[in-house]
């Protein structure tokens, strides 16, 4: 039983990390109709910039702020120079954002070198608590707590504030939002920066969780986030949260019990869900028809 609970917590922590990355991606797709394959690069730069500053200052909080800032700044540049010229054209979006992903991945190697970078949790998050035979690793609980707070914050923003309602309205009908006197481009930018900042946050949280960083994590986690967005339903934050937890938990169990097929589990899950719900868990039917 303790083993199962331990795997569950591990899976939940992984799921929350993926959720932080996927939430921004799903909003960016839902509102802006942009397929941003460079989203993983924001995660990557957040991880490297955050862990670097954490190493320099020994303050994990400063590292988190640096990761969020790195994600948001690179996100702003990406939106202005790479994505704005290809609005409305999915093929070009895929090509140019994949290119940006590769370039930003290589740039990380230029700035921080090609070698693995070690990352440890801060002192106050090291160690574990023990309840009976169950060992709860503090850092994993921290990731779950951060993910839960961000999820609750996103739900509050989207459902209880005018800005959030505008974002949801924009997902449905951008033209009408503009006709009501709202600058939709500014809303786009806000959503993009929010998504980019969350990707940066997710990046630094991964560092001490996996123990090492390398330039390829951007693409690896970026693909995982896309799988989560597709399973959850494009544009749905709650769908992404459910899908991320499913992917995280199933992945953790598969890695423990059937490690040979652990890599295939996510694809299998996506396949099964798409057969029965082509629009994803909480996606709108119209999206599947298009």
């Amino acid at each position: 039983m303790d083993v199962i609970l331990g795997i569950l917590i591990n899976g939940l922590a992984t799921g929350m990390l993926i959720f932080l990355l996927a939430a921004g991606l799903t909003l960016i797709f839902g509102l802006m109709d942009v397929l941003n394959f460079a989203h993983g690069a924001l995660f990557l730069w957040g991880a490297y910039a955050g862990i670097w500053l954490y190493g320099q200052t020994e303050s994990f909080i400063l590292g988190i702020l640096a990761a969020i800032a790195a994600g948001a700044i690179i996100g702003a540049l990406l939106e202005k120079f790479i994505i704005t010229p290809v609005y409305g054209n999915h093929v070009r979006q895929i090509l140019i954002t994949l290119g940006a992903m590769l370039v930003l991945g290589e740039l990380v190697k230029v700035v921080w070198g090609p070698n693995l970078i070690q990352a440890q949790p801060p002192e106050w998050l090291k160690g574990s608590w023990e309840f009976g035979g169950l060992i709860l690793i503090k850092y994993r609980l921290f990731i779950i707590a951060v993910g839960t707070v961000v999820f609750a914050g996103l739900l509050f923003l989207l459902n209880k504030t005018r800005l959030g309602m505008t974002v949801r309205a924009g997902v449905m009908n951008k033209e009408m939002v503009e006709a009501l006197g709202i600058n939709i481009k500014r809303v786009f930018l806000f959503v993009f920066l929010l998504g980019a900042a969350m990707a940066g946050l997710s990046g630094i949280l991964l560092g001490p969780y996996s123990g090492v960083l390398y330039a390829e994590i951007g693409l690896e986690y970026g693909i995982l986030a896309f799988i989560v967005v597709i399973i959850g339903g494009m544009g749905s934050v709650t769908g992404s949260a459910i899908a991320a937890i499913l992917v995280g938990v199933l992945g953790a169990f598969a890695a423990y019990y059937v490690p040979d097929i652990a890599m295939a589990v996510n694809m299998l899950l996506m396949l099964i869900i798409l057969i029965f719900r082509p629009q994803g868990l909480l996606g709108m039917k119209e999206a599947a028809k298009q």
């Binding site: 949801r168 449905m172 009908n173 006709a179 009501l180 006197g181």
Partner: peptide, 22 residues
């Protein structure tokens, strides 16, 4: 469009433009 709207012009489109999920 948003600046035109903010000049004081309201618009009711042919398809009503309702945000169905709101």
């Amino acid at each position: 469009t948003y600046k035109i709207s903010n000049k004081g012009i309201g618009f009711v489109p042919e398809d009503q433009g309702i945000f169905n999920d709101l």
